[in-house]
């Protein structure tokens, strides 16, 4: 619907093509870019950085969120600190990181992970807190050990929360990364967009094409992973 509105506005000549490139031009630009190794490398780099960042965040945060969800004393001690850190602006953190680590992919992954921390932490923590006490009674009565209690009860129980957390993390991470790629001096779609601005007569077209790429990637990942997970969950929820 938005697309048809866009196209009709452009075709009618209401908006000049220097202000808003026509949809068909953007799509053509996108197809052209998709064949360019240069562009694909940037896309790949962004994607790699985000995925690494999110995975890192997951590995670090998961055990913490689990513990905090199960012990309210820990929760009361740790969660306020996390909330405080989460309130800090990402850009400021990145500047700090770049000063300490230097520019490059490490900083990019770090900032990616940083923005991914909070959704994962809070969704998993919430998931654990919501586990009905009786589920623990069941695992106890049937003599499940710690590992079995985790694999057979806790993990499946919080799986929906995990999916939500990952989805959000992915989104947050993408947005932050694209915004800061230039500052971190790394390759990526953000860098591509800012470097292409003013470099040619149709730079805006290419910029929009790049943004559309991000949208397409997000949709693709959603379809490939998250929607599959959601369908599985819907069977029993």
């Amino acid at each position: 619907m938005i697309f048809s509105l866009w196209e009709s506005v452009s075709l009618s000549g209401l908006v000049s093509s220097s202000q808003l490139p026509a949809l068909h031009d953007v799509i053509l630009a996108l197809i052209q870019l998709a064949g360019t190794p240069f562009f694909l490398a940037h896309v790949g780099q962004s994607f790699a950085n985000v995925t690494t960042g999110v995975s890192l965040a997951l590995v670090l945060v998961f055990p913490l969120a689990l513990l905090v969800g199960m012990r309210s004393q820990l929760d009361q001690a740790i969660t306020p600190i996390i909330m405080l850190v989460g309130a800090l602006p990402d850009l400021a953190i990145l500047t700090l990181l770049v000063t300490v680590i230097g520019r490059g992919n490490v900083a990019a992954v770090a900032i990616s992970a940083f923005s991914a921390f909070f959704p994962v932490y809070f969704t998993i923590r919430q998931g654990v807190k919501e586990i009905p006490g009786d589920y623990f009674h069941v695992t106890s009565v049937f003599k499940a050990g710690r590992v079995q209690t985790f694999t057979k009860m806790i993990l499946p129980s919080i799986f929906p929360n995990l999916v939500t957390g990952l989805r959000l993390s992915f989104e947050f991470s993408w947005n932050v990364l694209l915004a800061v790629e230039v500052i971190a001096s790394v390759a990526g779609i953000g860098t591509f967009i800012s470097s292409s601005i003013g470099s040619s007569a149709h730079s805006l077209t290419y910029g929009l094409a790049a943004i559309m790429t991000v949208g397409l990637i997000t949709i693709a990942i959603d379809r490939a992973f998250f929607e599959r997970f959601e369908n599985r969950i819907k069977r029993w929820r």
Partner: peptide
């Protein structure tokens, strides 16, 4: 010693038979 719960406490992601098998699985 086994137990039946007031809240039923079935694991919702498991089918009926998978729930019954829980103790045996453990």
């Amino acid at each position: 010693i086994s137990m039946v719960f007031q809240t039923f406490a079935l694991l919702p992601w498991r089918t009926v038979i998978q729930n019954v098998e829980f103790g045996l699985e453990v």
